Each structure stands twice: as C-alpha cells, then as structure tokens.
Computed example of a mutant assay.
Amino acid sequence: MTTTPQADGVITAPAPRAAAGRPAAKQYLGVIVAVVVVVILLVLGALTAPNFLTVSNLLNVLRAASITGIVALGLTFVTISGHYFSLSVLQTAVLSSVVYAATASVAGFWGGLAAMVVTALVVGAVQGLVISVGGNPVVVTFAAGAAILGFVLWVTDSTRVLLHAPADSLAVQIGGATPLGIPMATWTFVVLAVVSHLVLQKTTLGRRTILVGANKATARAVGVNVRLVIVAAFVISALAAGIAGMLSAAEFGVADTAQFPNLDIDAVAAVLVGGTAIKGGQGSALQTVVGAIFISLLRNYLQIMGLSTGIQLLCVGGAVVLAVAGYTLMKGRGK
C-alpha cells in the first residue's frame, strides 16, 4: 500500500480500490442484490395485495423509508468506520424532536434548527469521544440511549411537547409540505443520500472513514487521526437522527417519546440488508438507500396483509439474517 505526501507534509490515505482481477461491478454487488430483492417484493405485493401498488400507499412507503433511511445513512458512517452501530439513534431522534418543538415554538424554524443541531452535535461528539479512547461502541451507545431517554422523560414529565406555530409557518411546513406531491422528508432523504455518497466516495473524510474501518493500524501508519474520524462518524449519525426527529415534529406538530416505533431496528436492518460490512471498511450510501426502501416495503406489505407487529419484527430480523449470510457467502466465493 502506498501513501501520497501532500504539500503541507500531511500523509493522506488513498481511496480503497477493488481487489486486483475483480470486475468493477463487484463494488456494487450489495446495491444490485438489494435492488433485485426490492423488485421481487414489489412483484409479490402486486400479485397478492391489491392496495399495495397504489399511489397513496407508495407515498406512505416513501415517507417511512425516508425517516428510516435518513437515520440509516448516518449509521452507515458508524458501521463503515468499524464500530458496528449506534444504539442511541432512536433516543437521539426523540430528544431532537423535543428540542425542536420546544424551541421552534418560541424562536421559529431557524431557532429550532440551531437548537437541534447543537443538541445532536453534543450527543454525537460525547459518544464518539468515549468510543475513540477505547469505549465499547455497543455499551457506550446503549448507555447513552438510556440516559438520553431518561433525560427526556424527566424534563417533559413524560408528556408530549406541542409545536406551537402557525400552520403556514416554515417551522411547520418544513415537515408537512409535499413539493411535486412528494413528502418533504423524502426530498430530504434524497439530498442527504447524494451528499452522503459524495462524502464517502469523493472526500478525504470519506476515504479515511473507510480506511479506519478496514484497518486502524494502517490508518494510523499513514497519518490518519483515527480518533477524529471516529468522533466525526458518531456526530454524523447523531445529526442524521436529529434531522429525522425535527422533520417528524414539524410534520405532526408534536414531539413524543413513542413517535418512532422500531426506528433503531429498522435503521440497523436497512444498513445490513443493503450490504454494508458490519466489521467496517466496506459499504456505501446507495446500498443503505436501497436497504431502507426494502425494509419499509416489507413492513408495509406485512401490515396490508394484516400480520401482527410480532410477525413483522420476525420477518425483518429474518431478512437481516438472510442478507448478512448471503453477502458473506458471496464474498467468500469471490476471494
């Protein structure tokens, strides 16, 4: 492996390349497989559930996929960096939703946005710092999630926080507007997906995140500030969860601890079904986008078929197990 000296003397790691002799399409194996599975699910739904492919139902799927996908895009950075997942994204979304609703009620959209961003930055940076000095990411984020939820329940006295703003104000419209008939959350998801893809593929931060996930020792050897990369990954994840919380509070006019059922499970499932390597070093935002769409389609189909929440969770879990096993087998054969 070679390194490239820069003008200022800093050594920058090169972008990871596909193994010699492998087709370039191998890099997009996760996307291709996930797209095929989505198409199969669409065909199955069309044949067995008459209301599945209606415009109104697909818009509902898009909105659900967008909230899940926004959070999952943030988690993608954490997973690619080699730190599994953040188990506090649901609680971060709840906290951000409460902060936005409370602040926007008195300071408008921009005040609510600023408060949400600062909150997410602090939450993500604290967790990232602890993990960067050796903290176990599962333990740290699990504990952080419990602390965040406890704080929210304490300050709100376990009650909902209403967003007091005129219906035509930006503070409300940012969540409920439907430009060209498409929910604002979906537009946000698309923009963030493009930005995430460009960051991971075209920027120094993205390349270093991939390298840290692939091999921390190599990253340190070529001059990468591994701790800074880890902190950045968890900050990005927290910001993504914060944006999801803000959009939800704006759309429904209320912040509630129960407004994100299974968000953490679905976001993690989206990352894994999309094919991002759980050990880090491999994956993309595009894979996560397709994974989020699949998980939302699957849940929607199961709901239309009248299946219980328990069966839905069973099917989502089964899809994750099959996806991880399938990707592992394919990668093993590709060596």
Results as ranks from 00 to 15, higher is better:
66 S>G: 06
150 G>P: 05
211 L>D: 05
264 D>Y: 13
22 R>W: 14
303 Q>R: 12
319 A>C: 04
139 V>D: 02
56 S>I: 12
146 A>F: 07
154 W>R: 04
189 F>Q: 03
211 L>S: 08
122 V>L: 01
34 A>M: 06
200 L>I: 11
214 A>T: 14
114 A>E: 09
158 S>D: 05
247 L>K: 03
159 T>R: 13
98 V>D: 13
66 S>P: 12
82 G>Q: 09
310 G>P: 04
7 A>V: 09
262 N>P: 01
228 L>S: 15
114 A>P: 03
265 I>F: 11
248 S>E: 15
333 R>F: 14
178 T>N: 10
44 L>W: 06
34 A>W: 00
144 A>I: 00
237 S>C: 15
5 P>D: 09
249 A>E: 13
187 W>L: 04
128 G>M: 10
65 A>W: 00
235 V>M: 10
62 L>H: 02
28 Y>S: 13
285 A>M: 07
84 Y>N: 11
44 L>C: 09
323 A>G: 00
24 A>E: 06
223 G>L: 00
112 G>A: 05
123 V>Y: 13
71 V>C: 12
334 G>C: 12
82 G>L: 01
20 A>H: 13
36 V>R: 02
28 Y>I: 07
163 L>H: 15
123 V>T: 12
255 A>V: 15
199 V>F: 01
227 R>P: 04
205 L>W: 15
184 M>I: 02
21 G>N: 02
88 S>K: 12
30 G>A: 01
